[in-house]
Each structure stands twice: as C-alpha cells, then as structure tokens.
Amino acid sequence: MSTPKIRFENVGKTFRARGATVTALRDINLDVRAGEFLVIVGPSGCGKSTLLDLAGGLAEQTSGRILVDDKPVTGPGLDRGIVFQQYALLPWRTAQGNIEFGLEAKNVPRRERAAKAREYLDLVGLTGFQDRYPHELSGGMKQRVAIARSLAFDPDVLLMDEPFAALDAQTRDGLQDELLRIWEKTGKTIIFITHGIEEAVYLGQRVAVMTSRPGRIKQIVDVGIDARSATEDLRSDPRFAHYRHEIWTLLRDEVKRARSEELEGTHV
C-alpha cells in the first residue's frame, strides 16, 4: 500500500483544567488514504473535535505526531481546509467575498479570485447568490458557502467538524448528497466528524468509532457500499441497516460510559 495521506501516530492530548490534568486523546493511531472519505464518530466529549484541531494545526498534540504526505504537521496550512459547525463566515463579507477570503490568504491575484469564487459557488449550487451577506442566507446555504470557501483554495484534505449538526434534517440530507457528489468530483481526502450514526454510514467509506474520554479509536468499520450517489434511497438498503446496527452496538457502551462519567462529574 502506498503511503497514507494522513497518518496519526500514537497521538495524545492532555489539557490542564482547574488544576487537574485531563486526558482528551490517548494513543490515536489512524491512517487515512488519499482520496478517502473517513468518518469519525464518537460520544460527545470524546475529543473528536480536538483530533480535528490537531490535524488542522490549530492545536498541538502532547505526544505522538501527525503526518500529512509524510511531513509532520506543525501549524495550519492551505493543504488542509477546515469546515466548522458554526460556518465561521465573515458577516461583513458577501458569499463571494467569503469564498475569496481563503484565496487572499493564498495570494491569488484579484481577477482570478473572483472567477474562482464564482466557480465554487456554482459547485455548491449557489449560483446567483454571490452578493448575499451571511445574515441573508439560510443555515444550509451558509454551510455551502463555508464548504465552497474551503474548497476554493484547493486543499488536498478537507477536515469537517460536525458541519451539518446545526441544520434541520431535510437540509442535512440534501447537503450529505451534495457533499458526496463534490467528493466524487474533486477527489479530496475528507475527514468528517459527526455524532450521528446514520450520517457516518451514509457518508463514510470507513467509519472510525471512538471511545468515551480519554478518546481512543475503538474500531474501524469498513462500510462496503460502493457508488453511494448512484444508489437510490441508500438508507433503506439492508446493508445500510447492517452497518448502522454494527456502529450503534460499538457506540452504545461508550455513550453509556460517557453519560455515567458526566453524572459523576456533576456530583463532585
């Protein structure tokens, strides 16, 4: 097998909070292939967002290392784009201006920026919305703009931190299909974080299930469903139900443990 696009090697992360040391992540070992759609699913508070911050270079691991194309991650970089749950759009810029923001960071010439921004607005299905400000867009549209912004500067890797969690179910379903289509078209490597089991099965070629805190990779499930976007109503496919149940079983104990720890925590 060729070298992985992203490799997590014994990655650990501890925080200091109120004088105590909290272990958020421990011994994370994970390889992500180039062009792969990998979903990480775990109970809330298991450190999956922290893991994404580490990969994005926004935080530093306490132990181990993360390699992208065999080079250790030392900070943020335009080879990785991050999509946040709360969109993180600049409210004083239009949709177009927001997409151009990433291109400015990459020092793309002005004229080229405008053309690129239009191209990616088209890609995410927002043709004609270039002059709208974020407050004039629905949640789903904002996330489309955020995705376009992350794609426009052409990173190899897209890191998505529960990007659809704040959206209503219908918008979410639509955007999931859209994301699969974009992924197939662009061939990006995607790490997608979610706490939704169905979302994980629907999107991921592989699903990494994490344990409750301290977060470790419990198991990686290969979701053997090909040509997702060609399959009509994938969710009612018996294979979908099979994988959903498998991941649900893996997660159930972790969610229970996380909850009881949370309760203990509040009693202290």
């Binding site: 994005g56 270079g57 926004l58 900070g75 943020p76 970089g77 335009l78 990785r80 784009g81 991050i82 946040f84 709360q86 993180a88 600049l90 004083w92 923001f101 990433g102 400015e104 960071a105 500067f153």
Partner: peptide
C-alpha cells in the same frame, strides 16, 4: 471562531488583524 477559522487559513497576525479583527 472567526479568528480560529482565519488562523486555519494560515493568516499571520498582521493580516488576521487587518482582515478579521479590525472589520469585526
């Protein structure tokens, strides 16, 4: 979050200030 997102794009402190903090 805006600062975090701008940092993820590799913006240095000067451009972060000029493009995000000041307009905000």
């Amino acid at each position: 979050l805006l600062i975090k997102s701008a940092r993820s794009l590799g913006l240095g402190p000067v451009r972060l200030f000029q493009k995000v903090v000041l307009p905000a």
